[in-house]
Write a protein that binds this DNA or RNA. Structure first.
Lengths: 197, 197
DNA sequence: GGGGCCATGTAACCCGTTACATGATTGA
DNA sequence: TCAATCATGTAACGGGTTACATGGCCCC
């Protein structure tokens, strides 16, 4: 399931331009589970056009590039339902925040705090964005996904706030004691400490 | 922050082979926030070797390829701390499950249920995996990340269980009524219904 | 006998990100 | 005057996934 599929999905709500589709990803209803920028959306639409999954009509505007309005075709719809009814891959997650926290002992304590608070702020921001999205009369699926996002960001925020003080204290304590090795301490050959799975 | 960086991170716990490093990703402490397979780990280690971030010694074995044991160098450690202390990109998430749920009205009700329960089971499995990982005397950062994972999977499981009945009922009701259009209904040009952000 | 564990890699491909290129209008 | 909104794209690059290639040992 790639960006193209999601674009076709957006078009089930009605015709749209690439620019409008992007709104679904950026601070839109997809933002918490799928990311895509113009660099993937425009090529995806071109590809979909070549495969007859969409058709396109242009509207000329002054001072701006022509608006290209895409519509889903029957083939596109069939492709979409095929993808949707097939197997879904597992979630793909990549959190550099958690990487940084995992290896926090190699980061200065004040930087850890900065990173932590920055992430928490982002989390809160995402929550606000989701809240601002229309939760009105939408199909059950869309509603579930929206509630999922709200629940998740809320839950993460709660967790981080609940663990913040102790965590940052522990980090300071660890970094104050020896062998934390932020700097240029020797890299010992076969350390085992802290390496248990 | 790529797979190479994570590999260097693993090597701060002591020397390891590519195979052993994979254990950190697959059902290991990284599994809930970073995915990587052999196809990215081995090339990453080769690259790290070429950049002198690691050194490597071989141990011959019979019946198997030589075991290649990697060790972090001072340069590698410096690179790692640089990455860790720099800016972290935002979380990248791609959940095909949520895509499917968002567009659930194009999926047969019984399939929706199957997908839902499958995801829930995966979630529970992930929880069990995390619980089985050693939560013993590890640095604060590792502990936080582990607790984060436990909290998250627990929270998602709770949410899904709490919404399951109503959601599946609603899905059935929607699909039973008209204009759900799983099949080959006409693709109307400029529908707006359900398309609100 | 079969599956899982150990153990390595590479080549092709695909997809996505980043940077570049353009530019008028509107509101703060 | 500056930033944001509207509006499109491409070229180069990078990274990761998939599939292929090999094979013995051990436990059920």
């Amino acid at each position: 399931m790639d960006v193209k599929t999601l674009c076709l999905g957006v078009l089930t709500f009605g015709d749209a331009t690439g620019y409008e589709i992007k709104g679904y990803f950026e601070d839109g209803p997809f933002s918490h589970f799928f990311q895509a920028g113009y660099g993937s959306i425009y090529p995806a639409l071109s590809k979909a056009l070549g495969e007859n999954y969409v058709v396109c009509r242009s509207e000329s505007q002054d001072g701006r590039p022509d608006k290209k309005i895409y519509s889903l075709t029957a083939e596109g719809k069939a492709y979409l339902t095929g993808e949707l009814n097939g197997e879904q891959a597992g979630d793909k997650i990549r959190s550099e925040f958690l990487v940084a926290m995992f290896f926090a002992k190699f980061i200065e304590a004040q930087t850890v705090e900065k990173i932590f608070d920055h992430y928490l702020a982002e989390c809160d921001r995402n929550l606000e964005v989701m809240k601002s999205l229309d939760g009105g009369k939408v199909p059950a699926g869309q509603l579930l996904v929206r509630k999922f996002g709200l629940h998740l960001y809320g839950s993460i925020g709660d967790f981080l706030r609940g663990n913040r003080e102790k965590f940052l204290d522990d980090i300071k304590a660890e970094n104050a004691s020896t062998n934390n090795s932020i700097g240029r301490s020797p890299v010992t050959g076969t350390a085992t400490e802290g390496g248990s799975l």
